[in-house]
């Protein structure tokens, strides 16, 4: 039981948005579709919701064949980046919409709306219009509206993309806690790797219409399938033909470690507790290294210091050209 996407392709004219995508999204979990803009992740989400049709392939939602079902019949909750509020209706009416469509008894609707508004902390705003709410409140309203119909799956398309950084952080913590309470299978699209790593149980990395890797945040971060996943999930630098995270490099002031790469410090920038170095080695470009303030002081590095670089024990490294070699 889950969302099963099999062999889905979608073109818009000449542009290939999705290229033979197959993925299984587990039930009851919070899954992130992560990737750069234009990579096809929103298209995949909209195809799952039935707001877009795929050219080929099939969609199963919790065991039900949904490929040709219209959006109305998929019982999917959808939350849009720009809220998609019904502007002329009060917050309570917005949340009640799906229930009224289903012709539920009035008192049942009222009770459910009250419950949901309490869940999203909007009970005191029930009679306001969406225009009188802040962006974060509007998105919480949209979430309550989507949850009202007890959807089989909840889909969120860049739900925090239109919000400022502080509200975004609050809302994603809140979404995580909400999910722990509600347990509905949830898929959200994001291009923010920090958001995905922090909130999701499972991450699907999508790039150029293809799935690069599926895994837990730890798996993706520690065992990236290729250089794209590695560089998309965090900062990387290149040492001896391998990608490595700048904070996973040891800087030595001697050459007694086998395989250490010699170089010269060309730049030292201190930002708060960390010190960023640029080290020139035999190959271009310069290697960037991040040290703590204490490490840098202990080494006594400065511009012009000769140093030797080696990946820390247990560091994740990926060969620079894995596509040609890795399957």
């Amino acid at each position: 039981m889950s969302i099963e996407v099999a062999g889905v392709s979608k073109r818009f004219g000449d542009f290939v948005a999705l290229d033979d995508v197959s993925v299984t999204i587990p039930s009851g979990q919070l899954t992130a579709l992560l990737g750069p803009s234009g990579g096809g992740k929103s298209t995949l989400l909209r195809i799952i919701a039935g707001l877009e049709s795929s050219d080929t392939g099939t969609i199963h939602i919790e065991g039900t064949e949904a490929t040709h079902l219209p959006a109305q019949k998929r019982n999917v909750g959808f939350v849009f980046q720009h809220y998609a509020a019904f502007k002329h209706m009060s917050v309570a009416k917005n949340v009640a919409f799906g229930l009224e469509i289903r012709r539920r008894p009035k008192n049942e609707v009222r009770a459910r709306v009250d419950e949901l508004l309490r869940l999203v902390h909007l009970q005191q705003f029930a009679h306001r219009l969406p225009a009188q709410l802040s962006g974060g409140q509007r998105q919480r309203m949209a979430l309550a509206r989507a949850l009202a119909v007890e959807p089989t799956v909840l889909l969120l398309d860049e739900p925090f993309g239109a919000l400022d950084a502080k509200v975004r952080k609050e809302l994603r913590d809140w979404l995580r806690r909400l999910h722990d309470e509600v347990h509905v299978t949830t898929v959200f699209v994001t291009h923010d790797q920090e958001e995905a790593l922090e909130v999701a149980d499972e991450i699907v990395v999508i790039n150029e219409g293809r799935i690069e890797q599926v895994g837990t945040p730890d798996q993706l971060y520690d065992e990236p399938a290729n250089d794209f996943v590695m560089s998309f999930l965090g900062p990387v630098t290149r040492l001896d033909g391998e990608l490595v995270r700048p904070h996973d490099l040891d800087v030595l002031d001697h050459d007694r470690v086998l395989g250490a790469t010699p170089g010269t410090v060309t730049r030292v920038v201190r930002v708060g507790f960390e010190v960023r170095l640029a080290v020139r080695t035999a190959v271009e470009p310069d290697v960037s290294v991040v040290l703590t303030r204490a490490e840098a002081r202990g080494l006594g590095v400065d511009v012009g210091s000769p140093v030797w670089l080696v990946p820390t024990r247990g560091a994740t490294t990926v060969p620079v050209m894995p596509r040609a070699t890795a399957g």
Binding site: L51, A71, F78, F80, H82, F86, K87, R102, A146
Partner: peptide, 27 residues
């Protein structure tokens, strides 16, 4: 008119006619 609101109504189960009457017409 934002297309989003109509898609939201559709995903909540509203038919085309209901969406027109309750979402589009008031606007």
């Amino acid at each position: 008119l934002e297309h989003d609101a109509e898609e939201a109504a559709a995903s909540l189960g509203a038919t085309g006619l209901t969406t027109f009457r309750r979402i589009i017409l008031p606007s």
